[in-house]
Design a protein around this nucleic acid. Structure first.
Lengths: 327, 327
DNA sequence: TTGTAGGCGTTATCAC
DNA sequence: GTGATAACGCCTACAA
């Protein structure tokens, strides 16, 4: 493979001069620059990035680590990568499949200098073991975490969730069921708390949260729809933890003969294409901005350059799966 | 940062010995191995992978390049990464957004040794410029391409598509409309040809293909459904290029009052969760195996180790969006 | 404005 | 079995 020496030889200069031309630093006369550029073109030369990395101590590569890549994770991956590319960084992905060792492998790459930083979407190891690695490079996470060393782009779903509940109330719903996701997640905890506040405020009927927990995919939504079908005394409305669940519910309910927005109301969460496709009211929040912020946090720590973080707001996207407001 | 010299010093041996211990090659006595391992543990040492890469001339990293990452592309990404991880490779992703330069940037990384190989999902540049890069490392693609140097894991949709058409015919449909995807794609060409054969065989009515071309997302499916609604003389059935299109059609048609499998028949393609969710008959083929094969092709060229490729078969997944067969 | 030379951290080929 | 030592390809003081 052609290297910097070959260029130096052909251009009849030293390798140092060639390096200066390539990196555009240090003095080099117009004429020699021309000759060197010519030689580079002639031999079709491009610097060996392994050598550059070794010398500079950075690979300009950031890892994105998750238990798996579905739904929102793929959107985050996409936005994060696009943002990283703008600054000349590459993104390499790590799927842990809930395997602690695999997550550690990725973390070790930070230590072995293969990665400059890590965006950890959904973790598997305990926080204290993950924190051990921040001394090797910046780690940013999506999870909510109280850590002095690991910043998070987590956004509290409190506001968004309340937005949905209020909308249901204003449109006349009085018996609302929550479809929660992961049992242990802090989001679920938040939702349970918010729902209690909400039912207290309007003196509404509450329900046992444990009956509708760990629902995350479209299949879980379909299961909930079949439950709905069997009830003698049916609830007014469903508040879902994700669009996937809402979509699964709506699709299955449709086959059972129930029309969303008429026979019952339902609200999703995330505003991905599923809710748009099935005309489901949902809560929107900027997933892409979350990813952009994650990159900026890492970039800041890497370069000391400040990059402003965008603030993230929830928005209710009103569609056909809920009734219009009562005035 | 602690390096191999530090270990050598602490263990009172030379760096060469330490290297032997780490790489498990060459002779080293049980006792010294013990001492060295001890020192490594004590200083929490891990080899700098940049230096290893430089020395060995490989980064154990493969790039996956696509215009974007949606739908099937994310499944391919996922399966490919899982397979690569098994052999100790990392995968870094490149989104070109149809920008030729961005695709070239990724290709250049092969040249600059940052990547050992590339899996090119959806290309942007012409094949002859892409072929220039195979001398720097293996490139495998998903597209169908007649190239001596770029192998493809493409599978001819002929069989799968015919499977769908025959099913429609056997269940009584006589006026069938095709919803094609990308105008220039070879898959579309294949489909148009197969459809002609099919209509000739059964002496059925054909239709102008250009009317239903470039349909790829759920929105395009919805548009087609609205067209269907407006027709005085309606077709029996729709054969779609993807589940996304079929799903968009079914969802929109539902809101317009048409029930799939009753008022019309429709078949998707890909068998992703969308078709399962909306109970749409579809054509299944193993996307994951395609990705696995892609990795194996790259791996073979990188290591000279043979890895058997799996054969890929189409399968009709019969669901509620088509009528039962007539006996 | 340009060249020399040392070093980034590792591996591999020699000797011993 | 083990230890010097020369690469791998590049960057960057420091000299000239």
């Amino acid at each position: 493979m052609t290297n910097i020496q070959d260029i130096a030889q052909l251009a009849k200069v030293s390798s140092a001069t060639v390096s200066r031309v390539i990196n555009k630093n240090g003095y080099v006369s117009k004429e020699t620059k021309r000759i060197v550029d010519q030689a580079i073109k002639e031999l079709d030369y491009v610097p060996n990035s392994q050598a550059v990395s070794l010398k500079k101590g950075s690979t300009k590569t950031i890892g994105i680590v998750s238990t798996d890549f579905f739904d929102t994770a793929t959107f985050l991956l996409r936005s994060f990568t696009l943002e990283a590319q703008k600054e000349g960084y590459s993104v390499t992905i790590f799927i842990t499949s809930h395997d602690k060792q695999k997550e550690l492998d990725a973390l070790e790459m930070l230590k072995s200098k293969q990665l400059d930083g890590i965006f950890l979407l959904y973790r598997t190891n305990e926080w204290d073991v993950i924190e051990q690695y921040v001394k090797y490079g910046p780690i940013v996470t999506l999870n909510r975490v109280e850590s002095a060393v690991i910043p998070s782009v987590y956004i509290d779903q409190y506001q968004g969730y309340l937005l949905g509940l209020e909308h249901l109330y204003q449109s006349g719903c009085r018996k609302i069921i929550n479809l929660y996701s992961s049992e242990l997640g802090l989001n679920t905890q938040t939702r349970i708390a918010v729902f209690k506040e909400f039912t207290d405020k309007y003196a509404l009927e509450s329900h046992d949260p444990t009956l509708f927990i760990n629902l995350s995919g479209t299949k879980d939504g379909a299961t909930a729809a079949r439950w709905f079908d069997l009830q003698a005394e049916k609830p007014d409305a469903f508040m879902c933890a994700s669009d996937s669940v809402a979509a699964g519910f709506v699709a299955e309910a449709m086959y059972l003969g129930y029309v969303a927005g008429k026979d019952y109301s339902i609200i999703g969460f995330d505003n991905i294409f599923l809710s748009e496709m099935l005309d489901i009211t949902t809560i929107d929040y900027p997933v892409d901005l979350q990813a952009v912020n994650a990159f900026h946090l890492i970039y800041q720590r890497l370069t000391k350059k400040e990059q402003p973080l965008q603030s993230l707001d929830f928005k209710l996207i009103q569609r056909g799966s809920t009734k219009p407001l009562i005035h």
